[in-house]
Design a binder for these strands. Structure first.
Length: 814
RNA sequence: GCGGACGUGGUGGAAUUGGUAGACACGCCAGACUUAGGAUCUGGUGCCGCAAGGUGUGGAGGUUCAAGUCCUCUCGUCCGCACCA
């Protein structure tokens, strides 16, 4: 019998399917493992990234099932979003049809990989039943004051005709279609993620050890907490009269440098500037310069040269009372802090460059503890304050604290914490999304829909042209009654950002399908299964999805739906799959199609290759001949297994009576077993486990003892089942009636050896090898070592001798 | 600029607490079997050298009996953020 993957794989997939083999138990007294690979967007076909993602998750799920855990390993579909609408525009297919057909097709593709998903708990986020609860959460959040509506400058993608969150703007371009973003002013709904900024930051500590440091760092950076002093810059009397402003606020993280302030700078969009323009106090060229600065998009501003104009007004230094000029400058951002800064050219590189360009004074007030001030640049390090009256002599944090205290005592300013994180704008002017369940009533204003009327569903009869919002253009959909007064009203026509759906889908899975009509999920179920024990997905979600999901979990906790603080205990970020050094993409023409691969070699070969070629967190370079190698291993495994006699339990072997090659084989097998434990539970370096299994099979091949073969296969098939399930079920069924699929304990006897090989080094250089009894004394070992290395020892004085048991001997000679 | 990851044969990668660097696999070379094979099997394969030996984990120092692993500096690659006050 030759290895025939397509036959074996069909057989077992059918077997698993018919028996619903992978449904979790509802018995909550069992130890649980929640293993989750990020759910896919139903784009049409799976790609190698999916294969990798689900091969990793499936291996872990299958492993824990063997350890007698209750395993939740679900799959679903992140099904709302723009590609469905783009398909509608291009090909005239309805987004719903396009999406569900894609799901149908991709489900088949995934099932051909033999993944052990719970079929029962699968759903798509575009299912109205999912929308229903999402809308209910939104209303809960609105009622809690966590959602608000605001008119503001928004990132607008002219191609997709929609608003984007800051997180969705990459290099000033749309994250989806790469179109440059423009600023547009409009109303939209915001979720107050900033209310949770501190907790989102603090709780990153809880994730240390479980999440990659890189992802934690990226989130920390994105939240961007900075502590400093906020104070008012009073304007001098004349400037007050001119502008109608008393003062303006500034924020600084370096109050210790405050006495080095020689000017102040405000953003070109600052209200103070507007007032001066409106009062006709600026000449034409100044106004022109300001307008030009305002027009320049943010991403160009940060590469442009520092530029600014004096506004002809003066502020009073809060400590010295000195008059300092106020400038409008292109490097000051309106969106951060108060849109104005105190400028200390001596201790800030930006302020320095600006001061040099416009000939503004530079005054050093912080000096290094040792050494000299740098020449021709700002000194930005901490140091000792000099030239600042009562604060002289203080250094670094000490000085900062003292100065903040001084401001607070005098009531001139206060300690303030600023975050870079902005509230999450969730309105999208699109059709294929969850409708925002709000109603605009001429009498009652903007009010939430009644919960018993949820879900607010999408109308099917829409025309999708790519221009404007189809829901807004629909002839009847938006007309409704006000849930408060019952009068005529209109529905909100914006839909929710798709990241809202992916922010809680992992909670939906925790409750069995039969309850889905009544609840989003039960608290009991969520508390049993959460947090996800192992989450697996791409690094590209390091900020967006993972931050929103963490935030949502905390909000739902505060709303009383669940008790956990963090949704994902451990996170594994898989590397990309590359071909010819580049990410696989249609445009580059370097795509390897998973279907074709499975067709040719089978799912087990695909899974084996993808887990063997590189550790899961690293990039994986595609290599056709290495795929061939993976296939070869499976053929060999199958061929050798066919020669093993079947048995119902693990054979008992008298280890002492075995020949050396037989003992070696057993040792290799048990080494693989130990490696398996650590790979599946801690390290996830499946490549090393597979290598250990290959070594074990090679070692088994060098001996002929039928019992050693039986035991070896018993263990290897158990170890490899999570990676290559089909072939392992087939062979285990044939040989052991699958009795080998439980937990297997190690055996100390196989690691006992008659002799150990040790290296002998002279002055650290490996020179010879000795073989000694495992219980040999230090003296015996040294004697053997001196003899073996006599060539290098003769005529020299031995200075020192080190024996590392079972490893090596190092003799130091002179 | 800030933050993070990484650098080992022709290639992917092993080496978990410092202890014989290069496991396992790909590729390549030689051989066996075969009508043939992109099949299978055996042996070899870091580099220099006929050999003895030397040398070798991006580079330079250091700690140590011993460094891919620890420390300092440096070069390079990749990723994220970025005029954030």
């Amino acid at each position: 019998m030759r290895y025939n993957p397509s036959e074996i794989e069909k057989k077992w997939q059918k077997f698993w399917d018919e028996r619903n083999s992978f449904e979790p138990s509802e018995n909550k007294t069992l130890p649980k493992k929640y293993i989750l690979s990020m759910f896919p967007y139903p784009s049409g076909r799976i790609h190698m990234g999916h294969v990798r993602n689900y091969a990793i998750g499936d291996a872990l799920a299958r492993y824990w099932r063997k350890r007698e855990c209750n395993v939740l390993h679900p799959i679903g579909w992140d099904a709302f979003g723009m590609p469905a609408e783009n398909a509608a525009i291009k090909h005239g297919v309805h987004p719903k049809k396009w999406t569900y057909e894609n799901i149908e097709y991709m489900r088949k593709e995934l099932s051909s990989l033999g993944l052990s998903f719970s079929k029962e708990r699968e759903f798509a986020t575009c299912d109205p039943l999912y929308t229903k609860y999402e809308q209910a959460f939104f209303i809960d959040m609105w009622n809690r004051g966590l959602v608000y509506r605001k008119k503001g400058h928004l990132n607008w993608c002219p191609h997709d005709m929609t608003v984007l969150a800051n997180e969705q703007v990459i290099d000033g371009k749309c994250w989806r279609c790469d179109t440059p973003i423009v600023q547009k002013e409009m109303h939209q709904y915001y979720i107050k993620i900033t209310d949770y900024a501190d907790e989102l930051l603090e709780d990153l500590k809880k994730l240390e050890g479980g999440w990659p440091p890189q992802v934690i760092a990226m989130q920390r950076n994105w939240i961007g907490k900075s502590v400093g002093l906020e104070f008012s810059f009073l304007l001098d009397e004349e400037s007050r009269k001119k502008s109608g402003f008393e003062s303006f606020e500034v924020f600084t993280t370096r109050p210790d440098t405050i006495c080095g302030v020689t000017y102040a700078a405000v953003a070109p969009e600052h209200p103070l500037v507007k007032a001066l323009v409106e009062n006709g106090l600026l000449d034409e060229t100044t106004k022109e310069k300001i307008e030009r600065m305002c027009r320049m998009p943010a991403r160009e501003r940060n590469i442009a040269e520092k530029e600014g104009v004096p506004l002809g007004i003066y502020a009073l230094h809060p400590i010295t009372g000195e008059k300092v000029p106020v400038w409008a400058a292109n490097f000051v951002l309106m969106e951060y802090g108060s849109g104005a800064v105190m400028a200390v050219p001596a201790h800030d590189t930006r302020d320095y460059a600006f001061a040099k360009k416009y000939g503004l004074p530079i005054r050093y007030v912080v000096f290094p503890e040792s050494g000299e001030l740098p020449e021709n640049e700002a000194y930005t390090e901490d140091g000792i304050v000099k030239g600042c009256g009562e604060f002289d002599g203080l250094k670094g944090q000490q000085a900062r604290d003292a100065i903040i205290e001084w401001f607070e005592k005098k009531g001139l300013g206060k300690k303030v914490i600023n975050f870079r994180l902005k509230d999450w704008g969730v309105s999208r002017q699109r059709y294929w999304g969850a409708p925002i369940p709000m109603v605009h009533c001429p009498k009652c204003g903007v009010v939430p829909q009644k919960k018993e009327l949820l879900p607010v569903t999408l109308p099917d009869d829409v025309e999708i042209t790519g221009e404007g919002n189809p829901l807004d253009h629909h002839p009847t959909w938006k007309f409704t009654k006000c849930p408060v007064c019952g009068g005529d009203a209109t529905r909100e026509t914006d839909t929710l950002d798709t990241f809202v759906q992916s922010s809680w889908y992992f909670l939906r899975y925790t409750t069995p399908r039969k309850y889905w009509e009544e609840v989003a999920f039960t608290k009991e179920d969520a508390n049993y299964w959460m947090p996800v024990d192992q989450y697996v997905g791409g690094i590209e979600h390091a900020i967006l999805h993972l931050l929103y999901a963490r935030f949502f979990t905390k909000v739902l906790r505060d709303l009383g739906y669940v008790d956990v603080d963090e949704p994902f205990k451990r996170l594994l970020t898989q590397g990309m799959v590359l071909k010819d050094g580049a990410k696989m993409s249609k445009s580059k023409g370097n795509v390897v199609d998973p279907d074709a691969l499975i067709e040719k070699y089978g799912a087990d070969t695909a899974r084996l290759f993808i887990l063997f070629a590189a550790p899961p967190t690293q990039e994986l370079e595609w290599n056709d001949s290495a795929v061939e190698g993976a296939f070869r291993f499976l053929k060999k495994l199958y061929d050798r297994a066919m020669k093993v006699e079947s048995c119902g339990e693990m054979p008992r072997i008298d280890h002492k009576s075995l020949q050396k090659s037989e003992k070696d084989a057993r040792r290799k097998v048990y080494e693989a077993l130990l490696r398996g434990e650590e790979v599946y539970t801690e390290r996830f370096t499946f490549n090393t486990l597979i290598a250990a299994c290959m070594e074990a099979l090679n070692a088994l091949d060098r001996q002929k003892n039928p019992k050693v073969w039986q035991e070896g296969m018993w263990i290897l098939l158990n170890l490899l089942e999570p990676v290559v399930p089909h072939i392992c079920w087939e062979l285990s069924e044939k040989l052991f009636c699958r009795a080998n699929f439980g937990e297997i304990g190690t055996k100390d006897e196989v690691f006992e050896v008659e002799s150990v090989k040790m290296g002998v080094s002279i002055n650290g250089k490996p020179r010879a090898q000795i073989e000694v009894a495992p219980d040999a004394s230090k003296e015996q070992i040294l004697e053997a070592a001196r003899k073996a290395a006599s060539k290098w020892v003769e005529g020299k004085t031995i200075v020192k001798e080190i024996v590392v048991p079972n490893k090596l001997v190092n003799i130091v000679v002179k």
